[in-house]
């Protein structure tokens, strides 16, 4: 348990039980300066995970519950006339935090959604002509209920691209669930956990992700994977160049978490499903024969 990163992951494991891989994926996503989309049913620990991440990494946390009447200004903030000061003063919205949990993004109108997504992409907001930088680090965890419900606006495919990864949490395994029921409330436990690193240390780590080596052989592998998705008959479109870059960055972050100075094919494979899953568009006429991420990995030889 040497580095602050390993300590942080260890602490997370003690709070979120049985979610080893998902926690590392979320951490990799954060280290790669990406944003995370969690698609899962309510009550499997999405919020707890976001809280724990914020706590362990010493990040300032904000939660935005998306509803159909939520307006962009409710997220970004508004300028209010202050009679005492004799002028307008900007009241920053909840987006001005280091870790945002955007709960049930698909409940809000497309206009509100796009305000969030724009902020995620630009890492700054423009309100009433003035551009304001968002804090660093800036990490959004959005959740989406996979079941199609009346009155929801599922994120369009082009918007899904803004998230570096999409993961599902799933039910805990029986052993973890038993511990969950026997022990104290997770949220209470959370209060006792001390941050494992500071925000500045996190930014340093994010910088070092870029230094993780990607050898020519590994680039060959990435190219082979991308090319394969473009040739598969079951897909309407394959991976875009942006998706390729995302895949590389996520794999670098994964290698860093694993304590390696370079990316190996297994790193790519570990993040592949999470990075690629929401970017592959199935060809509608060949429904049923759409290949899964695992199948794609099995079909492409490691060079």
């Amino acid at each position: 348990m040497g580095s602050p990163l390993q300590q942080a992951l260890h602490k997370l494991d003690t709070i979120i039980l049985g979610k080893h891989t998902q926690l590392r994926l979320a951490m990799a996503c954060l280290l790669a300066r990406g944003h995370l989309l969690i698609e899962d049913i309510p009550g499997v620990g999405k919020t707890t995970m976001a809280l724990a991440l914020g706590r362990v990494l010493g990040l300032e946390f904000q939660r935005i519950q998306f509803t159909s009447d939520l307006l962009p200004a409710d997220i970004l903030g508004v300028s209010v006339y202050e009679s005492r000061e004799g002028g307008f003063r900007f009241h920053p919205g909840p987006i001005f935090a280091q870790l945002i949990l955007a709960d049930e993004v698909n409940r809000a109108s497309p206009k509100t959604q796009s305000a969030l997504l724009e902020a995620m992409e630009e890492r700054q907001v423009t309100v009433e002509g003035a551009t304001r930088k968002l804090p660093e680090p800036f990490f959004v965890i959005a959740t989406q209920n996979p079941a199609q419900q009346i009155g929801t606006f599922p994120l369009p495919e082009s918007q899904l691209d803004r998230f570096l990864m999409r993961i599902a949490l799933g039910y805990p395994d029986p052993q973890a669930e038993r511990a969950l029921l026997q022990e104290r409330e997770r949220r209470d436990l959370l209060q006792e956990i001390a941050p494992a690193m500071t925000a500045a240390e996190l930014i340093t780590l994010q910088q070092s992700v870029k230094q993780v080596r990607t050898s020519p052989a590994l680039i060959d592998y990435l190219l082979a994977l991308i090319q394969h998705t473009r040739e598969l008959p079951g897909l309407r479109q394959g991976l875009s160049p942006r998706a390729g870059l995302a895949l590389r960055r996520a794999a670098q972050a994964w290698a860093l978490i694993d304590g390696r100075s370079g990316v190996i094919p297994e790193d790519v494979q570990a993040v592949f499903a999470a990075v690629v899953g929401h970017r592959l568009v199935a060809a509608p006429e060949r429904a049923g024969s759409t290949p899964t991420a695992e199948e794609i990995l099995a079909q492409v030889a490691v060079p």
């Binding site: 190996i264 297994e266 494979q269 079909q299 030889a301 490691v302």
Partner: peptide, 10 residues
């Protein structure tokens, strides 16, 4: 044999 999609470590 090494499977097509199998990395060296696995």
């Amino acid at each position: 044999p090494q499977r097509p999609g199998e990395g060296p470590r696995d």
